[in-house]
Amino acid sequence: MKVMETGEKTGFVGRLRLRWANDSHFGTVLVLLGLIILQTLVLGFDYDSVGQWFSAWGRNWINILRNNAGVGIIALGMTFVIITGGIDLSVGSTLVAIGAASMMMLDIGPKGFLGNLGITGLPAYVLTVIFAMLMGLVLGALTGLLITKGRIAPFVATLGTMKILRSVTQHFMQGYNPRVPREFLQLANLQVGGLMFMPIIYWLAIALILIYVSQRTVWGRQVIAVGSNERAAQLSGVNVNRVKVGAYTLTGVLVGIASIIQVARIGTMDFANAGSGYEMDAIAAAVVGGTSMRGGRGTIFGTVLGMLIIAVMNNLLNLFGVPPFLREAAKGVIVIASVLFQRKESA
């Protein structure tokens, strides 16, 4: 990313053009636009009632975005992790663990933690959200410490935590079905003008913040340095371990947020299956968006684009009536194709 540009800042248009000229996202954006046009054509443009057509098109899009907001948020953290040269396989299991714990706090049944303390309503919701983020933070930091201080390869360390968190959660949640208060569901399902777009707003807001973090903050740039050349970064006074732990911790917090969204959307969670495969979807989004698995290269904006490409593709396959089992294959094709495409581009 061209972050610190100098010269040629001839107003807004000039900067935009400069950006456009040497922006690594150019190809990704084109692919996304192509897919969107295709999707629009498939939906069928209705010349007679443009208004109606547009509202159907918009609704379809809000659905797409809302369904992908959770993974989309996790993918943002995954991007940082992958740029440092690591990987986090545990996001799906962490999501379930945090989801279970949050639901236990909120439960309106006799075992509800906050309910038993006499905390209900808004204070309980706020506490739960804070708790979910804190729990993500702690789990993420622990993962980071395992990898840095414990010197365990990221793949292995997170494979371990992935198994542990899922199985422990399933064990403790056997035969226990917490009931989440209806009001809490407003967090994800609040309707404005008949449209539900809260998760999209969370995703967008977090993405914007993280784009800034990645481009302008010391930590954000150090992430790139560590991933690109760890030794050189260390010999430039960068605390490599702290940078890495930061990436896993951030991912943990984001998983906490995604978990809350998941709980708030339907008020229940399938502890055996919820979140499974999220790690792969998040990695796929990052890779399609131009993040290199070797580290050192990748952007948050790219990951958002990558997530959108995968989402639109899914939607298209749905519209085309492709059998559901084949859709995963299509995802695989996109991931491989995008990497081949990018390699040619960067060579």
Binding site: K2, S228, N229, R231, A232, A233, S236, G296
Partner: peptide
């Protein structure tokens, strides 16, 4: 090359 240059960053960085 191994110890000082970060090839994915620009000159200023």
């Amino acid at each position: 090359k191994e110890n000082a240059i970060i090839k994915d960053m620009n000159i200023l960085e």
